[in-house]
Amino acid sequence: MSATTETHPDPSPPDASEGVEAELGFVGSIGAAFLDIAVAARELYSVFVRTLYYVFRGKRVKGAVLHQMNEIGVKSVAFICITMGFIGMILVYQSGLQAKRVVPDFTMLGATYLELLVRDFAASIGALMLATRVGAGIAAEIGSMVVTEQVDALRMSAADPIDYLVVPRFLASLVMTLALIVIAGTVAFCSGAATAYVFFDVRPDIFFNMQLVDVGDFLTGFTKCMAYGAAIPIVSSWCGLSTFGGSEGVGWATTRAVVNSSLAIIILNFFISAAGFLIFPG
């Protein structure tokens, strides 16, 4: 692999590739799209592997991870709490309405909601929210550094952009995604409990029912937190590092980071949930 292709793909203008695809015809265009996906997957894999390498072998700047924990985690607390609070209210209200029609008994409403929250919703919805805020921020920051040649200047200073830019965000995201999702889950549960009490007269002590939550649910939820915490900075950093052009390129990188991070979360959710149901069928 040449020195260039590792972190800095050649800045081919987007209209140029469109012109080439027009010459290829329909089948050729589909083939070209698959090739593009294969190249993107290889680059993403390369960023991931090199990030893991530098987690253990890199030399981090003092305070870089703490700084990113503040940027990624602390500054996301209010956003995550507000969104998850409202989502918790909506979920419990809709669930209560459905339960009212079928079995007018709300004793298991809290237990079912808590299981769903621990196993899936807190992690997946919280991570989707994080992807919009954190993913966009990472891609915009790294993308701006690419187009202003700061990433090239890093490479000239013998500082690998993966070690210097991606690893602190990766480590910070692993820790803070878990912490934020625990907070988000708690907020969603509390707002759900308040909704159940106001609209369906379910007392909080009845709503807080751990009967359906087992170790498998906790392990599945924890695995999702770690997977999403890793996926968001990796995907977003890759989008930032593959930025080309000027401010328009940074805009596209930001959009791609949000879309691809969200896709990664949904795909990971499918596989981890499937594995969770196979390993912990209860």
Partner: peptide, 15 residues
């Protein structure tokens, strides 16, 4: 040259 081999080159050629 790959990225690792470029290290000494970048030390010799600043930009």
């Amino acid at each position: 040259f790959d990225e690792q081999q470029m290290g000494p080159v970048r030390k010799k050629c600043a930009m």
